[in-house]
C-alpha cells in the first residue's frame, strides 16, 4: 500500500501538490487522471523517491520511498535510457540491480512486442522506444509498477499492444499498477480505482465500477464533470 499524508510539493512558485492525502490500495490497477500540470508526474516521482515532499509524508508499505526502490518499477514519461545502449545492453544493465527480474518474461516480451535485442535506443522510433520502456519495466516482477503517460504520442496499434501486455502480465492481487494518462478512454476498462487530480488537488477518487454505478457515467464523462464543477 502506498500512502500520501497531507503532501505538499512546490517547484519554485508552481504548486505541484497541495495538501494531498491519497491511499493507493495494494493489488489494484489505479488510474491517475488529470490535465497537464495536475501533479500526476510529481506524485509518481515522490513514490519513486525522485522528489521529496515539502510537507507531509509518503509511505510505501510503511517505509520511506528511498528504502523501497527495489520494489518499485518506474516508467517515466521522458526517455530515460542510455541512448548509446541497445536493448540487450539496457536489459543487462537493469537486470543487475533487481532480484525480481524475470528473464523468461523478458524474452517472451521482446518477441511479443516485435522488438530486437540489437536495436540501439537512439536509433529506434518513438513507438519502439515506448515499447522498450514498457519491456524493461514489466520484465520485473515488481510489487509496484508506476507508469507515467505510457501511451502519450504513440500510435493506436502500439497503444493496444501496450495495454494487452499490461493485462497479459498483470498478477491480480499481488501487483499494484499506477498509470497516469490523460487518454482516459484508452484505459477505461483497465483501471480498478481512479484518482482525478487537478492543479495539485484531488477532485474525485474511488472505485471505477462503483463510480459508474453511482453516477451512471463513463470515467471520461466523470472527469469532464469533475473539472467543470471545479471551475
Amino acid at each position: 500500500m502506498i500512502e500520501f499524508k497531507e503532501v505538499s510539493k512546490s517547484f519554485g512558485s508552481t504548486v505541484a501538490l497541495d495538501n494531498v492525502s491519497i491511499l493507493f490500495p495494494k493489488g489494484k490497477i489505479i488510474g491517475l487522471f488529470g490535465p497537464n500540470g495536475a501533479g500526476k508526474s510529481t506524485s509518481m516521482k515522490l513514490i519513486m523517491g525522485l522528489n521529496r515532499c515539502d510537507q507531509g509524508e509518503v509511505w510505501v508499505d510503511g517505509q520511506s520511498p528511498q528504502n523501497k526502490k527495489q520494489d518499485v518499477a518506474y516508467l517515466p514519461e521522458i526517455d530515460y535510457l542510455y541512448p548509446w545502449m541497445n536493448i540487450a545492453q539496457a536489459a543487462d544493465f537493469i537486470r543487475t540491480f533487481y532480484a525480481d527480474w524475470d528473464e523468461a518474461k523478458y524474452r517472451e516480451l521482446v518477441q511479443y512486442l516485435n522488438l530486437r535485442e540489437d536495436m540501439k535506443i537512439s536509433k529506434i522510433s518513438k513507438g519502439q522506444r515506448a515499447k522498450t520502456k514498457l519491456l524493461l519495466t514489466v520484465s520485473r516482477r515488481a510489487p509496484y509498477l508506476l507508469m507515467d503517460e505510457p501511451l502519450s504520442g504513440i500510435d493506436i496499434l502500439t497503444r493496444e499492444e501496450i495495454i494487452n501486455t499490461l493485462i497479459k502480465d498483470y498478477r491480480e492481487g499481488e501487483q499494484t499498477i499506477i498509470i497516469s494518462t490523460h487518454e482516459i478512454a484508452e484505459v477505461e476498462s483497465l483501471v480498478d480505482e481512479v484518482i482525478f487530480l487537478d492543479r495539485g488537488q484531488i477532485r474525485l477518487g474511488g472505485n471505477a465500477e462503483d463510480l459508474r454505478v453511482e453516477r451512471n457515467m463513463s470515467l471520461v464523462e466523470l472527469m469532464k464533470e469533475a473539472f467543470r464543477n471545479a471551475d
Partner: peptide, 13 residues
C-alpha cells in the same frame, strides 16, 4: 542532459 538521471536515481543503490 540525457535524462538518464531518472534511471540512475530510481536504481536501488
Amino acid at each position: 542532459n540525457f535524462n538518464t538521471v531518472y534511471l540512475l536515481l530510481s536504481l536501488p543503490v
